[in-house]
């Protein structure tokens, strides 16, 4: 484990009565740095908690916000559950898929945009909603999406999965 990671691991572990509690925050931290949970991160997490790599892999694979493959600089997660669906999420999704030329779960060939349809984001009163790099956007119409897309294209966020 790199010294910097070790420091972070210790800092996180100190927050909890037991070290393993810091595993998921630690993987989130690694993911913020590497863009996804790498094999090295799995190893480091195992070392930090006295677990086997297998155990860490099992744990990591459970959570949808821990990615085992790299995602685009822009992670676009659109809600697909009932309230958003009632207010046009389906049309928004179709629009985005067409605009980006990807299917659910895919990344654009330039590696910039990853598109995911996700479950209820607890913003049902401002439907349809989406998250861009975990930041909320509400009442997103197809036109609004196009506008957002332009601003995203113009920006190059350092991380797509912020940890803190």
């Amino acid at each position: 484990m790199s010294p910097e990671r070790r420091r972070k691991a210790e800092e996180l572990a100190a927050r909890y009565p037991r070290r393993q509690s810091a595993l998921i925050p630690f993987l989130q931290y690694c993911q913020e740095q590497d863009g996804f949970v790498t094999r090295q991160a799995i190893r480091d997490g195992a070392e930090m908690c006295g677990l086997t790599e297998a155990e860490v892999e099992s744990i990591a694979s459970f959570y949808t916000l821990l990615f085992r493959q790299s995602v685009g600089k822009h992670l676009i997660q659109v809600c697909r559950t009932l309230s958003c669906m009632l207010r046009g999420a389906g049309e928004l999704q179709e629009h985005i898929r067409r605009r980006l030329g990807v299917r659910n779960g895919e990344t654009t060939p330039d590696g910039l945009f990853t598109y995911e349809e996700v479950e209820c984001l607890a913003a049902c009163d401002r439907a349809p909603c989406l998250q861009h790099n975990l930041m909320f956007h509400y009442n997103v119409t197809p036109d609004e999406f196009d506008r957002l897309l332009e601003t995203w294209r113009a920006s190059r966020p350092a991380v797509s999965l912020p940890a803190e």
Binding site: L51, T52, A54, E55, E57, S58, S61
Partner: peptide, 10 residues
């Protein structure tokens, strides 16, 4: 107690 066989995904 070898902990190498796991469930992945959910």
């Amino acid at each position: 107690h070898e902990r190498r066989l796991i469930v992945v995904e959910r």
